[in-house]
Design a protein around this nucleic acid. Structure first.
Lengths: 346, 346
DNA sequence: CTGTTAGCGCTTTCAC
DNA sequence: GTGAAAGCGCTAACAG
């Protein structure tokens, strides 16, 4: 904070007997520098251990080579994986990720965003926790840098997006359950203010219809992605006289609650009840039994978001553009959490 | 990147009929500004929607209010939790985290570190992937900003650290197993180049000795924190004629491999074999059965690291200091993964 | 209390 | 091809 041990460009210029302009040209690989001069400069730079000052450069060029990434919670594997994917791409391209977690507090989204905007990040990757946050939308309007949303849809903003198509995986999963003879299937889904909450629900409805299943309102809940919600709703579902023979968890955190509730109430998977979840985690993959999941490429989602953002940053000419949405598929992975349900009916 | 929509300090100065110096004073809450002037300036700033330029300020003050955080892999819950903890503290104090993941590549640690150093982060929080990385040590020497290590020990560098005392949790865990009658206990531990690898091993040795148990070399492996290592070693352990009656996994990723291997070979926990792991994850907590763990406060580790760093940054006078190590305890949490072992002996 | 001035370290016209 | 000079937007002496 206090020291200035590093050598400056001016210093290099003197040692190499050229002007700072020339140093700058060499540094930025500009043409119009005689070869021998360039070599000499490079030599001096090297032996002086000179490193250009990122900050000063940014002040001039207005480009910081940083990208702001705002997510709710890194403890959720979904976001951690996206962050990991995005960071690896950004790192490869000399960009650095400014990370900001917003917790459960939607208002924090806004504050963190504004903060990063003031720091002049070159762009944003966002997995906001409330798509209708108007304050945030306003802030996003003020930002004149490209934004990529990850599995979010926001109106009133110009932003690219990387989104997931939940239908293929959901169709397969529901068909699978139907073919196993399940009729009463519970669904515990997340917040409808977020795209995954809405789209999974729509996919579920559609898939149920395709299988001729009715989505009993008493069996379908959709309010929160929290583990607690999964827990409570599962307890409620299995406490009913005519309890469902299968449960679909609308998110990996919800699944944690579902599994815990089933464990606590002594129900065994898949003997007593079948389970399927969205998203793939260690718990679902190697738990006992391994849970069949509707999975999507999480790391790639992050990678693609970063790549899309970099594309915008290098776009010529910069400025207005038609936002694009990159769609990633889901798929159903059968494991050992479901079993045929012998209906007494028909 | 290209636009400059925002208004500058000079502009504000003119509108408020004062000099830029006064604006600066108001902005930085300096004394020596008449109250009415301050009010007027604030007013102008407000209605102009002026926001100070972080970059220009940093160029002058040499303080960026950013902290570099380098971890191997956010997909590992341990690092994600630490990042989450650190970010929440940093955010509260107006600091932003520059995140860099290094993957499995120790050399990337160095590159990422150098990169962040050139970006003039005010300090570092590091969970490096190789404590003896000499290149990195050299780079760290060049950095004249405070560094906090999280559960790492490096020689040749001046850095505070937040570390874990694995002994209490390990002692309890091993005693617990011993009291259940286990004599042949396998240990699958991680990389000895990292503090958790070494310290857990030492804690294990000590705890075994305290219980009068011998740590059979054929049952104790310690090479890698990878899931695959856990898998392979578990297969190897249970393929022996005199297989261990219990296995301790030296890390959460290792545990994934252990559980998978046991599942694949049809061994049931705890009926056929008992299992204990270090670190607590969803998989271990709500899997079937829930696995007893030696846990530590992960989020707090991140929080404390951030707090320690902030303390250094605000330290008067800045400069040299005696590094401190903050030690966090572990504890053993009994769940349902262990069962008494009936020895035929004695 | 307030203004003037000199930079922070770099990029970028514009001459030469 | 190269250099001189003018800032980027802000802070910090130093005068007044």
């Amino acid at each position: 904070m206090t020291d200035r041990p590093s050598i400056t460009m001016k210093e290099i210029a003197q040692r190499a007997n050229v002007s700072v302009a020339t140093i700058s040209r060499v540094l930025n690989n500009r043409e119009y520098v005689r070869d021998d001069v360039r070599r000499r400069v490079l030599e001096v730079i090297d032996e002086a251990g000179y490193e250009p000052d990122h900050m000063a450069r940014s002040l001039r060029t207005r480009a910081t080579h940083t990208v702001g990434f705002i997510v709710r919670d890194l403890l959720d594997l979904v976001f951690a994986a996206m962050a990991q994917g995005a960071d690896s791409v950004l790192g490869e391209h000399g960009y650095t990720m400014l990370l900001a977690t917003s917790g459960l507090d939607a208002e924090l989204d806004t504050r963190r965003f504004a903060h990063l905007r003031q720091r002049h990040v070159d762009g944003f990757i966002l997995a906001v926790s409330d798509e209708r946050n108007e304050q945030l939308v306003a802030e996003m309007g003020r930002a004149s840098v490209p934004i990529v949303l990850v599995d979010r849809e926001m109106t009133g903003v110009t932003a690219d997006a990387v989104i997931t198509d939940y239908r293929p995986g959901t169709d397969e999963a529901v068909r699978y359950l139907a073919e196993l003879g399940h009729r009463r299937i519970g669904y515990i889904g997340g917040d409808q203010r977020l795209r995954p909450g809405r789209e999974r629900w729509l996919a579920i409805e559609r898939a149920f219809a395709a299988q001729g299943l009715t989505l009993d309102a008493s069996l379908a809940k959709r309010e929160s992605f929290a583990t607690e919600f999964g827990y409570e709703q599962t307890r409620a579902l299995i406490d009913t006289p005519d309890r469902p023979s299968a449960i679909i968890a609308g998110g990996n955190q919800i699944a944690v609650g579902v599994l815990q509730a089933l464990h606590d109430s002594g129900l065994r998977i898949p003997d007593d009840i079948s389970v399927i979840s969205y998203d793939d985690t260690d718990l679902l993959r190697v738990g006992t039994p391994p849970v069949s999941v509707i999975s999507r490429p999480l790391i790639d989602t992050g990678r693609l978001a970063a790549e899309q953002l970099l594309a915008r940053l290098n776009q010529e000419p910069p400025g207005r553009f038609e936002p694009v949405s990159i769609v990633l598929p889901t798929k159903f992975e059968v494991r050992e959490s479901c079993r045929a349900h012998e209906e007494l009916s028909s």
